[in-house]
Amino acid sequence: MSINTSKAASISEVAAHAGVSIATVSRVLNSTKPVNADTRERVETAVAALGYRTNALARSLTRGESKLLLLLVPDFANPFYSEIIKGVESVIRKAGYSLVLGGAPDTLSRDSQALDTLYNRLADGVISLAHYHDLQPLLREMPGLPWVSCSEFIPDSDVPHASIDHQQAAVDAVQYLINRGHERIALLSADENYLWARQRHLGYEVAMQRAGIAIDPQLVRIARGTDYVFGMEAAGALLAQKNAPTALFAVSDTLAIGAIKAFRRAGLRVPEDIAVVGFDNVPLSQVFEPALTTIAQPMHELGAAAAQLLLERLAGGTPTSRTLQHTLVVRESA
């Protein structure tokens, strides 16, 4: 069979050609773990057939460092993550590092360039905003990789993280609505595979229970995503209820803004007919009409803190996780 070698093959292509995992190819190339003779021969044959050449920089990493850090981002379109990226960059640039961005969980796909970067040892460490369970296979394959989490984290883990107290922040948001006289308070949540979404949902329940307000299951909606359109979609379902809510707590600003658009299309005034509180304080929240009442996460500071934690790990330290302060920002929507 004729192989096209007009462009450099990636480690994932070598793995597919040999019928093995990327981790196995890495073990053969870097001699990090024993590999049986048959498997080694298949990998070496694939390397020769594809003309794969390991980067000279990768070979030198046992003696030095690449000055590259990988940041795993679940959704590049979400402005929340954009602000965190800026915070990360503000710290690592001063330390002489550059940033490589990888989408998660796509990073685990066989043709992922970001995954190549890790298996070739071209990244010194990782900052992850991704769902932990999506990344468990990677952590098992590379247990020695310096790793920190940001916003989304693993409770009681030895992986240091920078985050806020998501549950208490949600309690503060819902309590504000209760203090304004609302009892029919809806919750618009997101994918609860994420810890932050589960904790914000729990905060909603805690605030309602403390106030002695029964939770109507019909007023709890899980959006199919965090984009604006999913907020519109879920808000429409809430409006279909016979006894509609007088207030809404959304677990992200994007969902809250989408919901407001749906409410206004239905002829409702915000906040006169229904009050809305979001979460994150993304830049759009203060220029949107009506300006959004929201929980402000210190997004830039979260990114900077995560970067500082990773740099400390790379220097051989054992950094302690950091919980940053949130703030309730009252504007026009509630």
Rank of each mutant, 00 (worst) to 15 (best):
F279T: 10
S321V: 05
Y52K: 07
A214R: 10
A259C: 07
Q136H: 02
H300K: 07
V270A: 04
D280R: 06
A306C: 06
Q199M: 12
S98I: 01
Q113N: 05
A262G: 07
G96P: 00
S163N: 09
M142C: 08
R121V: 04
A250P: 02
E301Q: 13
A18M: 01
D158T: 12
V14M: 04
S26F: 02
V277R: 08
V28Q: 03
T54E: 09
Q167H: 13
S149I: 00
A162N: 05
S6W: 03
H133A: 10
I11P: 02
E332C: 08
G225A: 13
L101C: 03
G125R: 01
Q209N: 13
L195N: 04
F230T: 11
A305V: 06
L268E: 06
A244D: 01
I85S: 06
Q218H: 14
Y194N: 05
E301C: 00
R93H: 05
Q168N: 14
G51A: 12
G278Q: 12
G236M: 02
S66G: 01
A304G: 13
T45M: 10
Y81V: 02
L188D: 03
G258M: 10
I257R: 02
L328G: 10
S163A: 14
G267F: 12
D253Y: 02
N4S: 10
K7M: 10
Q308I: 08
L328K: 08
T62Q: 12
R224Q: 15
T294E: 13
V220F: 01
I215N: 05
S2E: 13
A262I: 07
L188W: 03
L310M: 03
A190C: 03
S189F: 00
Y176K: 08
A197Q: 07
I222F: 11
Q167F: 00
A306M: 06
E183S: 14
A240G: 10
L302Y: 03
A114N: 09
S98R: 11
G102F: 01
D158C: 01
A9F: 04
H131Y: 06
A211L: 11
V282Q: 09
L122A: 01
G125E: 09
A211T: 06
G102C: 03
